[in-house]
Amino acid sequence: MKLVLERVQSSAGVFTLDVDLTLSSRAVGLFGDSGAGKTTLLELIAGLRRPQSGIIRLDDQVLDNPSHRIHVAPEARGIGYLPQDGALFPHLSVRKNLDYGRRRPREARRSTLTLEATLDALDIADLLDRHVSGLSGGERQRVALARALLASPRLLLLDEPLSSLDDAHKRAILPCLTRIRDEFGVPLLYVSHAADELFALCDHIVVLHRGTVRSSGPPNTVFEKVTLTGHRLVHRSPL
């Protein structure tokens, strides 16, 4: 996976995101304060928001280039998106949620992402006939993750997927994410404030600050000095 954001600018009110990035790691962590532009950046990559200028490219495909009026619709990008609350469809059962974007084996980009393997990796086989309103927070996130994977994405965007879960649920899901990255080979772009999640999953970290890239590189380089406060990461370096 090679994701290129070339002088990408996007404005909403007084906030402007202005980034220039090339990412080619298996799992990239996106870090920054509230209002740094993390969700805006994910929405741009997913095609849910259009940049005012710049080019967004995934592998050999140009996804956005406003100066040439290019904008690939979200449904044609093959980029999965998991928001903070999972966004399961409340009017559908777990099975129907999973089927919503599911690719037939022939259409799937990865042969490893079968229904059985996904259910097994996320341990949700026994939830199939449940209604989503009866699921716990952790179950909801695992189902949402499975739904995104079954659409066979070539890149999966995760927007603080564990932030609303307690530690026990976090501990249960983190190994699933590692497995998705390694066994299924799905590249991840992972937004989080938590140090343990970023260090466990990501081999590259991007720090955003007020809409611009402050730092980008391997975790140990980017976080010159880290202090763990509970499970929250506080970075003291000027970055």
Partner: peptide, 24 residues
């Protein structure tokens, strides 16, 4: 967010309207 996620799952605007927006 539900409509947006449906788009990222491969559904076009019409499918999103009839399978997500309208039922909800």
């Amino acid at each position: 967010r539900l409509e947006q996620v449906a788009r990222t799952l491969g559904a076009g605007p019409w499918r999103v309207f009839f399978t997500v927006s309208l039922p909800l």
